[in-house]
């Protein structure tokens, strides 16, 4: 189990306990986190689950593979060094306390 916090640009937050093994796109949609859509169900074809990871946590979220790296090029809000597609981050005890920032398209 991991407590994950999503922070919006307006300063509001959503926090939720997420079962190990679920990906954080699924967790976000189940908890009404705005702007996280996950249309393709997590198969790296839509880039609609983009998040910025709190830099302190970034390394713990795992490696970015080539496909994710490419798909990060097509996010609505331009990628930054701490960008991830949240469908590729899998909840685990090590991620308890993780903070994600949700980009908001214009």
């Amino acid at each position: 189990m991991a407590t994950i916090t999503w922070k919006m640009e307006d300063g509001s937050e959503i926090a939720a306990d997420v079962k190990n093994g679920l990906n954080l796109m699924e967790a976000a949609t189940a908890n009404n986190v705005p702007h996280i859509e996950g249309e393709c169900g997590g198969c790296l074809s839509c880039a609609t689950c983009h998040v910025f990871v709190d830099p302190q946590w970034f390394a713990k979220t795992g490696e970015i593979d080539d496909i994710e790296d490419t798909m990060l090029e097509m996010t609505d809000v331009e990628r930054e060094d701490n960008s991830r597609l949240s469908c590729q981050i899998i909840a685990s005890d090590e991620l308890d306390g993780l903070v994600l920032y949700v980009p908001e398209p214009e």
């Binding site: 790296l44 074809s45 880039a47 080539d66 496909i67 490419t70 798909m71 090029e73 097509m74």
Partner: peptide
């Protein structure tokens, strides 16, 4: 070929 897909879409 995700690059063709991602950039092709753009």
């Amino acid at each position: 070929e995700p690059k063709s897909y991602a950039f092709g879409r753009k």
